[in-house]
């Protein structure tokens, strides 16, 4: 495979607080290749957003500590000055966020907000930037884009605002688009619209996408490769098919089993993962998922490394042997099957 477009190497992010050090991201390594969609799945507090916000160097908290490297086009983003990183933000790598209702500045017209980004990165005249903005708005499916460019964000619905955010994000033809829960705040029919828009733009522009989400259904629809995060670490990583049809980590099984799915017979009970995620201030010794795992054994007191136990490129951080995993996992992922057994 060619060199990755974006290479995160052993990234660590911690926040100093009065109660101690919160290890939000604890040694994450990820590669993103040209044209692919990488899904990062995890629950709140798993570190998925913090990881990508750190890549963009958008964490301004003075109590944050960073370690590790993020290589983009041969340069380490973590070592860049503010001016250098600015030339990459919005141009080489751009980002859209969860809540389209609050992500646009309420006092400026949407067209102006797109123009502002174009003119920050390219030397073009205002009318030229305006034409580009209108073109982009049309491309993301805003009807009467020329007039609508003069409207304010509050005059748009949530779905339309997310379209504006996307138009803005792709305005400078970025290599990488980071989408942080882009549809979580939207209704399901609007979510379908936005996801198909991201797919289309990805095809048209060849942009690589990092899709952060908690919804396994969204990554099943969108992602080429998937990384699952838990308590600041990646616990499993592989292709979309590997993750869905041959998952290796008990937490991944739990995620799959706890979804109330429409495509399967209704189980009497969902497989709930017992307990709560651990405090990021005091991670348990060994496997961070250990305390909630039904298959825990002595070795889990050693921290499992993220290794390709199940095949090249399919990494997981679980001590169970491949055979043990095959034996136990289906009953977790498919609660409806377990109940049918006599």
């Amino acid at each position: 495979m060619a060199d990755p477009l974006l290479d995160i190497r052993n990234l660590k992010v911690a926040f100093r607080t009065d109660d101690g050090l919160v290890r939000a991201v604890d040694g994450v390594s990820l590669s993103l290749y040209e044209g692919e969609t990488l899904g990062i799945v995890g629950e709140s507090g798993s570190g998925k957003s913090v990881t990508m916000m750190s890549v963009m160097r958008l964490i301004t908290d003075p109590n944050a500590q960073f370690d590790g490297e993020v290589i983009y086009k041969g340069t380490n983003l973590m070592g860049m000055s503010q001016d250098q990183i600015r030339s990459i933000r919005g141009a080489g790598i751009s980002m859209i966020f969860q809540d389209p209702m609050t992500s646009l500045n309420p006092v400026y017209k949407v067209g102006w907000q797109i123009e502002e980004q174009i003119r920050e990165h390219e030397h073009v005249s205002r009318p030229a930037a305006r034409d580009r903005a209108v073109e982009l708005l049309t491309a993301v499916g805003i009807p009467n884009a020329r007039e609508r460019a003069d409207a304010y964000p509050h005059q748009f619905s949530g779905g339309m605002r997310q379209r504006v955010m996307i138009a803005m994000a792709v305005s400078c033809n970025p290599d990488v688009l980071i989408a942080d829960e882009p549809t979580t705040a939207l209704d399901v029919t609007i979510q379908a619209q936005i996801l198909s828009l991201i797919k289309k733009l990805k095809q048209d522009f060849g942009t690589a996408v990092v899709l952060i989400t908690h919804d396994m259904g969204v990554v099943a629809d969108m992602a080429d490769r998937i990384a699952v995060m838990y308590a600041g670490r990646i616990i499993e990583q592989g292709t979309q098919r590997e993750l869905f049809y041959d998952p290796q980590h008990p937490y991944t099984w739990g995620l799959l089993g706890s979804i109330a799915r429409l495509d399967r017979p209704r189980p009497r009970r969902l497989t709930a993962i017992p307990g709560l995620p651990p405090s990021l201030m005091q991670l348990p010794v060994g496997c961070a998922f250990g305390e909630r795992c039904a298959h825990r054994f002595e070795r889990c007191r050693e921290t499992p490394l993220l290794l390709d136990r199940a095949g090249p490129g399919h990494l997981d951080a679980c001590h169970l042997s491949a055979q043990q995993k095959q034996d136990v996992r289906d009953r977790t992922i498919h609660p409806e099957l377990v109940e049918e057994r006599p």
Partner: peptide, 8 residues
């Protein structure tokens, strides 16, 4: 945050 992410 969006404004920063735009590279301003």
């Amino acid at each position: 945050r969006t404004a920063r992410a735009k590279g301003l």
